[in-house]
């Protein structure tokens, strides 16, 4: 950088976080290079919002991994409508409701748990991570002997659509895996929302949420650990949402790799890095 830019002597902190720290300054403003980096990241995130879900690829990979799938669509016909009409993204389209009703009538009804996978605001997240997340949680459920509904794959879906699907499956608990709004540094975050006794009309206070699930954020193993705790507690106490606190203690997990575990601002003595 030229001497037109004041460089921050704490650039070494950058390895501790993906946050845009120690950018330096031109006067008091953001220097040209980080300004343009930001604009490029914004352009990429804008593009991610409009990427479609890879329905065929996801179906094939899920079936190969022994997850039976049912393909559904919300009442929002396309992306433009979806962005302006969240009400349509929260409910099934008429054809999908009929399809799911027929499947349930043929005996696919009465499960311990139903998983729903929906594109949300980042199909990229679902395309990349939904199957890995399902595979991370499955052993814990198999071990507990839970009956699992076919995975519902939903296009143009929002969080609440999981409740309608869970109810139609007669599932005691529904978990929706959904693409979160893409960020500049994380266009691929998956969110998990769990509802006990799902039914149409529930709101956020009835759900528990685990967010930022992606390899660079909350790992699949960590998310599965939390979700397993929430699922078992929800089933035991017959509730979900604000009355069910996440008391899972994450320290028992192996650390997630790259990051330091201590706060250098207050800890004395040894360097946290080996």
């Amino acid at each position: 950088m030229s001497d037109l830019v004041v460089v921050n002597p704490w650039e070494g902190l950058r390895r501790l976080t993906q946050a845009r720290i120690a950018l330096g300054r031109a006067g008091v403003s953001i220097p040209t290079k980080p300004l343009l980096d930001f604009q490029f990241a914004h352009a990429r995130a804008r593009d991610a919002v409009h990427l479609p879900m890879d329905r065929e690829g996801l179906c094939a990979r899920m079936e190969a991994a022994q997850f039976p799938v049912i393909e559904l669509h919300s009442a929002a016909p396309d992306r433009t409508t979806y962005l302006q009409r969240p009400d349509l993204g929260r409910k099934l389209g008429a054809d999908s409701r009929e399809k799911l009703g027929a499947l349930a009538a043929k005996g696919a009804h009465g499960f311990d748990i139903a998983f729903v996978v929906a594109d949300g605001l980042s199909a990229f997240a679902v395309n990349e991570h939904a199957l890995s997340m399902l595979e991370a949680i499955r052993p814990k459920l198999t071990e507990a002997g839970w009956r699992m509904a076919p995975v519902a794959l939903v296009e143009q879906g929002r969080v609440a659509i999981g409740d309608e699907i869970g109810a139609m499956f007669g599932a005691e608990i529904v978990v929706i895996l959904i693409g979160e709004r893409p960020g500049l540094s994380a266009p691929d975050s998956l969110g998990l929302y769990m509802t006990y006794a799902p039914r149409v009309g529930l709101t956020d206070e009835a759900r528990n949420c685990i967010s930022n699930v992606r390899p660079e954020g909350q790992s699949f193993a960590a998310a599965a650990h939390r979700l397993d705790y929430l699922l078992k507690e929800a089933k035991r106490r017959k509730l979900s949402g604000v009355d069910l606190k996440d008391e899972s203690e994450m320290k028992v997990l192996p650390t997630e790799g790259k990051q330091d575990q201590t706060n250098f601002l207050i800890s004395e003595g040894v360097s946290p890095r080996a």
Binding site: N8, W10, L13, R14, L16, T17, Q18, A19, I21, A22, A186, S189, N212, E216, G217, Q218, A222, E256, Q259, D260, Q261, T262, N263, F264, L265, I266, P272
Partner: peptide, 18 residues
């Protein structure tokens, strides 16, 4: 607002100091 996706103490501290 020193948010961090996994609440990592060192990552949060880095943003606080910045």
């Amino acid at each position: 607002q020193p948010n961090h996706p996994t609440d990592d103490p060192a990552g949060i501290a880095a943003s606080i100091l910045d």
